[in-house]
Write a protein that binds this DNA or RNA. Structure first.
Lengths: 198, 198, 198, 198
DNA sequence: AATGAATGAGTATTCATTCAT
DNA sequence: CATGAATGAATACTCATTCAT
């Protein structure tokens, strides 16, 4: 089990190849040999860096989750009014979906796995809670500043996340709608309209 | 190759067992023998009524899709104002999610499959389009009656569907939140608030 | 287990269908259901008249063997000189091969089975011995009458049979040669020339 | 997918085991696991060197065909009169049959397969034509040298081949006759007697 | 560290046979 | 006699994983 800091390059080399192959064929239909070939390494080398296929899948899940969280925090960190920050998050989400377009099927398989494996579900759930808290805080600030009317911040956060996730889902299934980007943002504006103090 | 009207009872007998097993273990981890045992039939009998595992999965997908569509149409068919009818749809959706609670993991695997198989994606996509049209029509009526302000009906319909799907997704992943039902309806009310003419 | 004399018509009904199917697909690739369909009976009925697939195959073998033997005896029974009678046998053989053309692949599978199963080989062997004796007797008469020179009748009989069987084999494999019939008879004439007293 | 020159040793290792098992039990009754055990390799290794059972069978057929052709050419290549060379071929054939004694049932199954599969039949047919041409040429030389009387060389070649094949067939079926070797050669001498110029 | 040949557990599917009606 | 739904044993093939080199 190599541990050189430098050869963790191997790990991402493998993960990159794995993501590509998993996206193309799915977790189950992708053989370790496919990943080996795509990574330019040997089958045996894969097991030098990951304990096995399941471990590799789990590592990918962790990584993708980290990406999303990082992006979300970055969006919230930006300044501006509560409305502006929520819009920024929405925009980030839409952009993120487009960025990992090819890997989207993996996300869906990820969810499918999570729905069944408590351990996987737990980490996903944790990051959801964290994300929800981030959003709720923004909403809370909006209410405090008189920008939003008085509503349950948790419910609003839940709604936004559900909306974003649902958009990602539809995007993966429905034939690429040109209106996709517009619809995504329009959806959030509708929400914000409902939220605005009158 | 039995084809008696009466023995289509076998088909649902098998499908019922298959849904339970698939939900518990997933498409791949479920062996035909598991389904046989759960259905009280023999392995061979399964193949008397379904050409194979894939065919069985496809049949389940079709059936679940049909359930959803039927429920949606029923909800819209109810009378009342546009707002009332959209709320009815939302309530139906929440109820439906609870009804098929155990089968939810199947839906996620269903999406995962759809994201990769054009044929599956096509039917799912078609039912999405149909559903969107149903919702858009309600929105259009709401606008005509002065109940809603003037917005893009298609965008609103897209938003509602995304919201519903996202809720289902979160529901499957996040530890059963007691606020689930409340959140789900609150989310739609937020939307309707944003939609209401002022 | 029906035993009416009349319903042994069923047996030939089944055997006829079985021969056709076996010839088309081979012993192994033919399913009992194929035979049932071809015979116009139900799968269960087959087992009313034959204990099983193997029994049916054995019955077919017995029947085909009986055909050949009957034809051989008929040919020898005809009058004429030894040469004429041997030619008659050869002609009969050629005709027989053409008659059962469609069933020829069955004969080859028959041999393949016989080469491995002692019981099957035994009956085939017995009929070979009998046939050889019939031929040897004709040769013996030819020698006694001064028509043939003095040779080992058994060796000649063996030769003729080998020649006939070999012709059948080649006929089944080699693209239908138009010269087939001519070659077959020419071969025997060559033999008879070698046999003739000088 | 090993391809080293060295590890084609594996291929013959497997083929050798397969021939033994196929001869004992037949193509169909032999399971891949039987071959694996007999070869001292694992089931998986078999598929490393042959795409599957059918491929393995086809390879064996090709190999056995090549053996026969090589032996035939070698026999013809020997010098001597036409009569001597034809006798050499016959002797070679008899020897060859004895050499592959254990594999004879495979040859019969081979023929059974060939009678049904055009592709297999084609290669067998091609080698038959080639062999026939080799023999016909010897006969032609014998006629030219005045050793044989004037006959159709093709018919003679056909006759010899049929005789040889028929002998092999009988040998596989009939209880091992001690006279076998004598009969085989006697049969050819009869033919040559018929052929000799007078 | 890396390789890739070897392993063998795991499973969908087929089909001869049975038996309740 | 006849049916055909039901059974379950049997098997080719795949692929994650290991380990000698």
């Amino acid at each position: 089990v190599p541990s050189d800091e430098l050869s963790e390059e191997r790990q991402s080399q493998i993960m990159e190849a794995a993501i590509a192959e998993f996206a193309r064929r799915g977790f189950h239909a992708t053989r370790m040999e496919d990943i080996a070939r795509a990574s330019g390494l040997s089958k045996g080398a894969l097991y030098l860096y990951y304990r096995g296929k399941d471990t590799l899948i789990a590592a990918i899940m962790r990584t993708m989750l980290a990406w999303e969280l990082r992006a979300a925090r970055a969006a919230v960190a930006g300044g501006g009014s509560a409305t502006e920050r929520l819009l920024a998050i929405a925009a980030m989400f839409v952009a993120e979906i487009e960025r990992i377009a090819g890997a989207m099927p993996i996300l869906l398989e990820f969810y499918a796995v999570a729905a069944r494996q408590p351990a996987v579900r737990a980490s996903l759930s944790a990051s959801y809670v964290e994300f929800r808290e981030v959003l709720a805080e923004v909403v809370r600030q909006g209410i405090a500043s008189g920008e939003f009317r008085d509503t349950d911040p948790g419910a609003v956060a839940f709604t936004i996340i559900a909306l974003m996730e649902g958009q990602g889902l539809l995007w993966a299934i429905v034939p690429q709608d040109d209106d996709w980007r517009a619809h995504g943002m329009a959806a959030v504006r509708l929400l914000l309209d409902g939220l605005r103090a009158r």
